[in-house]
Simulated assay, not measured.
Amino acid sequence: MPDSVHLACIYIRERPGLRRYLTRMTGNLSMAEDLLHDTFLRVLDSDQSMGKVRDPRAYLLRSARNLALNALATQRRTPELSDLPEVAHPAPAVVERMIAREELLLVMRAIAGMPAKRREVFIMSRVDSLSYDQIAGRLGISRNTVMVQIVRALSDLRKILEM
Rank of each mutant, 00 (worst) to 15 (best):
E33A: 02
E33W: 01
L35M: 06
L36R: 03
H37Q: 14
H37L: 11
D38I: 02
D38H: 08
T39R: 03
F40K: 04
F40G: 03
F40E: 06
F40D: 03
V43R: 03
V43T: 08
L44I: 14
D45P: 00
D45Q: 15
S46V: 04
S46F: 05
D47C: 02
D47Q: 12
D47L: 05
Q48L: 14
G51K: 11
G51M: 15
G51H: 04
V53D: 02
V53P: 01
R54W: 00
R54Q: 02
D55E: 08
R57Q: 10
R57W: 10
A58I: 11
A58Q: 09
A58K: 11
Y59A: 07
Y59I: 02
L60M: 12
L60Y: 06
L61H: 11
L61D: 08
R62S: 12
S63V: 13
S63E: 12
A64H: 00
R65E: 10
R65S: 04
R65F: 15
N66I: 07
N66R: 13
L67E: 02
L67V: 03
L67D: 01
A71V: 02
L72E: 01
Q75P: 00
R76L: 05
T78N: 07
T78I: 09
P79S: 10
E80L: 12
E80R: 15
L81H: 14
L81T: 15
D83N: 11
D83H: 14
L84T: 06
P85H: 09
P85W: 10
A88I: 10
H89S: 14
P90Q: 10
P90L: 12
A91R: 13
A91F: 09
A91C: 13
P92Y: 04
A93R: 13
V95E: 12
E96D: 12
E96S: 09
E96H: 11
R97W: 07
M98K: 13
I99T: 13
A100P: 01
A100G: 13
R101C: 12
R101M: 14
R101V: 03
E102P: 01
